[in-house]
Amino acid sequence: MQINLTGHHVEITNSLREYVNTKFSKLERHFDQINNVYVVLTIEKSNQIAESTVHLKGTEVHATADNHDMYASIDALIDKLDRQILKHKGKTTHH
């Protein structure tokens, strides 16, 4: 899995990059056919927004989460993506 991390009005530190890598590695335990992941971290006024597009085999999954803390928004983003990936996996194995 290749993770492309981009910051918009925020500097991507090593600790933030490491946190994103460890969180997104948890998605591979449910579905191992993840090709690319594009993550954009943005700060707008008091909101800190994390959005991601995950390219799976055959489809794409997109989610956005915002919070006052960047780490909390990344956690919410991972939860949303995890649910969507499990739903996609259920559809592919069921059919």
Rank of each mutant, 00 (worst) to 15 (best):
M1G: 08
M1V: 09
Q2I: 10
I3G: 01
L5K: 06
L5F: 12
T6H: 14
H8S: 09
H8G: 01
H9F: 15
V10Q: 06
V10A: 03
E11F: 12
I12G: 12
I12R: 08
I12M: 13
N14R: 13
N14G: 15
S15E: 15
L16E: 08
E18P: 00
Y19V: 06
N21Y: 14
T22M: 09
T22Q: 15
T22C: 11
F24T: 03
S25W: 04
S25K: 11
S25H: 13
K26F: 14
E28T: 12
E28N: 14
E28G: 02
E28H: 14
H30G: 10
D32Y: 10
D32K: 15
D32C: 02
D32V: 11
D32T: 12
Q33T: 06
Q33F: 02
I34Q: 00
N35G: 06
N35V: 03
N36H: 15
Y38I: 01
V39G: 01
V39F: 01
V40S: 04
L41S: 02
L41F: 06
T42G: 00
I43Y: 08
I43L: 02
K45F: 00
K45T: 11
S46L: 01
S46R: 12
S46F: 00
S46A: 05
Q48A: 02
Q48P: 00
I49N: 02
E51L: 01
V54H: 02
L56A: 00
L56S: 00
G58Y: 13
T59H: 09
T59M: 05
T59G: 00
T59F: 07
E60M: 06
A63W: 09
T64I: 05
N67H: 15
D69C: 04
D69A: 07
D69S: 12
M70C: 06
M70L: 13
M70Q: 03
Y71Q: 08
Y71T: 07
Y71E: 09
D75F: 12
D75C: 09
L77Y: 10
I78A: 06
D79K: 11
L81G: 05
L81R: 05
L81I: 10
L81M: 11
R83C: 05
Q84P: 02
I85L: 02
L86W: 14
L86D: 09
K87D: 13
H88A: 04
K89A: 00
K91P: 00
H94K: 13
H94N: 10
H95C: 02
H95M: 00
H95S: 04
